[in-house]
Structure formats: C-alpha cells, structure tokens
Amino acid sequence: MWLIMTALAGVIATAIWYVKAPEDKYKLGLLSLFFWGATLMWLVDHVMAYVTEGGEFLEINLDATLLGVAVIVFALFVWEIVLVVNDPKGALRKALRG
C-alpha cells in the first residue's frame, strides 16, 4: 500500500512542480525526486519479493496504509526542513530581524 501511496505523492508533487516550472523556488523538484526514488526502490523490492517468494504483490491493510501516511509525512517534513534552511522567500530572515 505504501508503494501506491508514495507513487501517488510523486505524481502529485511532479504535477505541481510542472505547473510552476521552470521556476522551482519552493524546491518541488526535490520533493518529487524524493518520492520517485523511494517509489522505484520499493517497486524493485515488491517485484523481486513477488518473483522469488510469491504471495500478494501489494499489502493492503491498516498497518500498510499507516506506513504510507507516515512515509509521506516524513518526506514532507524533510522537504520543509530543507525549505526553511534555504528560506527562498526570505520569510525566516525577515522574522528573525523583527
């Protein structure tokens, strides 16, 4: 389930990045690549597990859904830290100056 949710987050982040492109003031390109990197890795993991061990390709249960939510929240959290540190709008700098 977390694979599908991360892929969906990647699709949405990429669409929003494209609307604003080529400008990338808020580093949506970074967020998109974060989601796509994880999606690719989990896709490989799921395919290899399915080929070698069989069973269900996707885990669809509450735990897997909560993990999907946690993954998206964590990615957004990392992105926001990068955004605040870089402060492209200068908001933090202005706030600190008072």
Partner: peptide, 17 residues
C-alpha cells in the same frame, strides 16, 4: 543524489516501522 537520498531516507523509515 536526490533520487538516491530520498529513496534511502524513506526506506530507512519503512525498516524502522
């Protein structure tokens, strides 16, 4: 780097989970 670090960070979270 963004693809690799993003994937690594999110997979690390999954492994912690």
């Amino acid at each position: 780097n963004k693809l690799l670090w993003g994937g690594t960070a999110l997979l690390a979270l999954e492994h912690v989970w």
